[in-house]
Design a protein around this nucleic acid. Structure first.
Lengths: 192, 192
DNA sequence: TATTTTATTGTCAGTATTGACAATTTAGTG
DNA sequence: CACTAAATTGTCAATACTGACAATAAAATA
C-alpha cells in the first residue's frame, strides 16, 4: 500500500552526483546546493533520502569502498593465471576500462580524512585491502614467487597507477602515462 | 620614507596558512575566513596583501611550484654519484626530512585543476619537470644506464612516493610505508 | 612636529549555505 | 473513491562568505 519507494535508486543517483562534485570541488567544496543541482533534484530531496552533509559523506565513503571492492574483484578476475607481465600491465592500465574519477575521488577523500577520522580509518583499511588483494592475485599468476615479493610489487604498481590516474585527470599526460606503464611493467617483470 | 613594508613576510605567512588550510579542507573548502583565522589575521588583511580568492590561489600555486623546485634541488644534491640504490631510497623516503604536506597539497591542487585550467597546466608542467629532473640525477648515479630507463624508474619511484605520502597523512600506515619503500628499491636496483 | 606611506581594523550589502519543518502531490491499495 | 505511504516542493530563520570600501593606527622621514 502507499506509493512505491524509489529510495534505493534515488540514493544511488544522489551519491553519483555527489561523487562527481567531489571529483570537481573536493569534499568541503561540495555544497548541498551543488550536489542537488548536479543530481537534478531539490536540496530538500537530498535531506529526504539520505540526510545532512555528514550522512551524505558517510554514505559516499561506504559506497566508494564497496564499489571499489567489486570493481577490484572484476579486474582481478581478468588477471588470469599464466598471464605474462606485459598483458597484466596492459590490462591494468587500459584507459578504456578504468574508472576515470577513482583516483580523483580517492584524493579528495584523503584530504577529507584529515578532518574526518572515520573517513581516514576507512581509507587505510581500504588501501591495505586493495594491496593485499592484488598481491594475492599476483601470487596466483607467479606461484613460484614469495608472497612478500608479490606484496611489494603490488604496492608499487598500485602507487604508480594511482599517481598517473590523478594527473591524467588534468589533461594530456602522454609522457607520464607511457613512463608509468613502463615502470609498472618493470616491477611486474621482476616477478617472472 | 613612510612606514616600512612587511608585505613580503606577511604574504608568506598568509600563503603558509593557506597551504595548511588546503591540506585540511581542499582548495574549495578553504574560505577566506578560515585562512585569515589560521594566519592570525583579519580577512581584510588578506585582501590588502594579496587580493581576492583567485589571486590567492594563483599565488599559492606559483609558490608551491617554486618551493618544490628548490627543495627538489636540495634533495637532488643529496643524491651523489656513486651512491647505491639502497641509500638512494633511504634518502628519498626519509620521514624526518620530508615535507609532510607536499602530497596532500598536490592532491588538493589536482582536484582544483578540474575547475581551474591554469592550475592544471601548471601542475602538468611541474610533474614533468620533477620527473625529468629526477631522471637526470639517476643518470648521473648510473651513467651506464640508458636515459630512457632512468626516466621510467624515476617516474615509478615518484609515483610510489606520492602515493604513500598521501596515505601516510591519514595515520599509521607502516605496512604501506615498508612495501612502498621496498618497491622503490626494487626499481632502483633494476638500474644497477 | 607635519607628512607620508603602509599596516590594521571596521563596516556593509549582497549572496550562498544550512537545518528544520510545513505543505502539497503522486501512485499505489482496498 | 477513500486511504496511505512516499515523493516532491516550498518556506524560513540563522549563519557563513565575499567583495568593496572607509577609517584608524603606526612607523618612518624631513
Amino acid at each position: 500500500m502507499g506509493r512505491p519507494s524509489i529510495k534505493a535508486e534515488r540514493t544511488q543517483e544522489i551519491l553519483d552526483a555527489y561523487e562527481r562534485c567531489v571529483s570537481r570541488f573536493g569534499v568541503e567544496g561540495s555544497t548541498l546546493e551543488k550536489i542537488a543541482e548536479e543530481a537534478g533534484l531539490r536540496r530538500s530531496s537530498l535531506r529526504h533520502y539520505i540526510g545532512n552533509k555528514d550522512d551524505l559523506l558517510e554514505a559516499l565513503v561506504t559506497r566508494f569502498i564497496t564499489k571499489s571492492r567489486q570493481s577490484t574483484e572484476e579486474l582481478m578476475s581478468c588477471l588470469t593465471a599464466g598471464m605474462d607481465a606485459a598483458s597484466l600491465v596492459e590490462t591494468l592500465f587500459d584507459e578504456s576500462s578504468r574508472d576515470q574519477s577513482l583516483a580523483l575521488v580517492a584524493g579528495a577523500l584523503i584530504v577529507a580524512g584529515t578532518e574526518y577520522p572515520d573517513v581516514a580509518a576507512s581509507l587505510i583499511t581500504w588501501i591495505d585491502e586493495f594491496n593485499d588483494g592484488f598481491a594475492k592475485r599476483l601470487r596466483k599468476i607467479w606461484p613460484q614467487c614469495k608472497l612478500r615479493d608479490c606484496q611489494i610489487v603490488a604496492t608499487g604498481i598500485i602507487g604508480i597507477y594511482f599517481n598517473v590516474e590523478s594527473f591524467s585527470s588534468l589533461g594530456s599526460t602522454e609522457k607520464l602515462n607511457k613512463r608509468s606503464k613502463d615502470a609498472a611493467l618493470r616491477l611486474a617483470l621482476s616477478l617472472s
